[in-house]
């Protein structure tokens, strides 16, 4: 073989390796598309749009969570609304730039401030707010605390932000008709939080997991470690073209996209159990648990310590 042929062969092998790597990383081949609107928005499937969040600390910045919407033939469903009234307004403006279809539903995936504090921007007579059957209780318990924190921040619109409670509660599953498609909403057992709701669009084969899925950004545990692992394990035999996490990349396929999170949670579980069994105290646990995961996640030091404390408090009752 002459030199150019060898070179081409080398390039082909390289391309094959990259493709295989991409496949195992769960990258779907349809590339997401940036749309020209005033505020940034990414089209992730035929009718699904995500305003991608940045990995930044809450109450110091907005635009943290992935929030978005699905445009049906007769209805738009909004999925999460952001960290403030202002962020909600920007999402509303984006929707209005793209479609005149009425917004029928605002779905909250859970009660965390970066996902639901923009609700008020969508408050109108014909909009139904939907959440997990435990969402209202969660909001009643922590909503005021989040508002206080927000009002102590520098946001210009903090004063206008309000907690909006769900009009409709989901227990088990619920079907939402958007005209050309029926969304399937599932209320999960306590996992990331006590009130996690996922949304599946069968037409585009897109699953919105909210914070049941974290990519890149270290997971935040605010519900049940064992419950979260169980929910993710249950979902493992499903296959989806695209899955939308609450934080991180929006072009991944399921179940591959869940592998990193599942690994983190299992390490957290196993090493916390070992630490408790060895007679270790809660205050020292973070110096021993999950250290192999540092370097694999962004914001690791902001959340890992509290995850270990939560894990310890849960597992000491086993």
């Amino acid at each position: 073989m002459n030199k150019p042929t060898l070179y081409i062969l080398f390039l082909m092998i390289l391309a094959l390796i990259i493709l295989t790597l991409l496949k195992t990383q769960g990258v779907s081949y349809e590339l997401t598309e940036k749309i020209e609107t005033r505020h940034e928005i990414t089209k992730v499937a035929a009718s699904s749009y995500v305003r991608k969040g940045q990995h930044r600390p809450i109450f110091k910045s907005e635009d943290i969570a992935n929030i978005g919407f699905i445009i049906g033939s007769s209805c738009v469903a909004v999925i999460d609304t952001g960290a403030s009234y202002n962020e909600g307004l920007r999402l509303l403006e984006t929707i209005r730039e793209l479609t005149a279809t009425p917004i029928c539903y605002v779905i909250n995936t859970h009660a965390h401030p970066d996902h639901m504090l923009g609700n008020k921007a969508f408050q109108a007579a014909d909009v139904t707010f939907i959440g997990h059957h435990k969402l209202a209780q969660s909001l009643a318990l922590v909503g005021d605390f989040f508002l206080q924190r927000l009002r102590a921040s520098e946001y210009a619109t903090a004063q206008d932000t309000k907690i909006i409670f769900p009009d409709k509660a989901v227990s088990g599953t619920l079907e939402l008709d958007l005209g050309d498609r029926k969304l399937q909403l599932t209320a999960h057992a306590t996992a990331h939080t006590a009130a996690d709701l996922s949304i599946y669009d069968p037409k585009d084969d897109v699953l919105w997991l909210g914070d049941l899925l974290f990519l890149e950004h270290v997971p935040a545990l605010d519900g049940s470690l064992l419950g979260w692992i169980a929910e993710l394990e249950d979902l493992q035999d499903k296959q989806m073209t695209t899955v939308i996490p609450g934080h991180g990349a929006v072009n991944k396929a399921w179940p591959q996209a869940g592998h990193g999170l599942l690994r983190y949670l299992r390490v957290l579980r196993d090493e916390t159990r070992e630490w408790i069994a060895a007679g270790g105290d809660i205050e020292g646990a973070h110096e021993h648990v999950g250290l192999s995961e540092r370097g694999l996640w962004q914001q690791f030091d902001d959340f890992h310590k509290r995850n270990v404390i939560s894990a310890y408090a849960e597992l000491e009752w086993e």
Partner: peptide
Amino acid sequence: GGCSAPVGTDLEA
């Protein structure tokens, strides 16, 4: 930590 409310959210449990 923004999500670190001083109380839990799952009273039932």
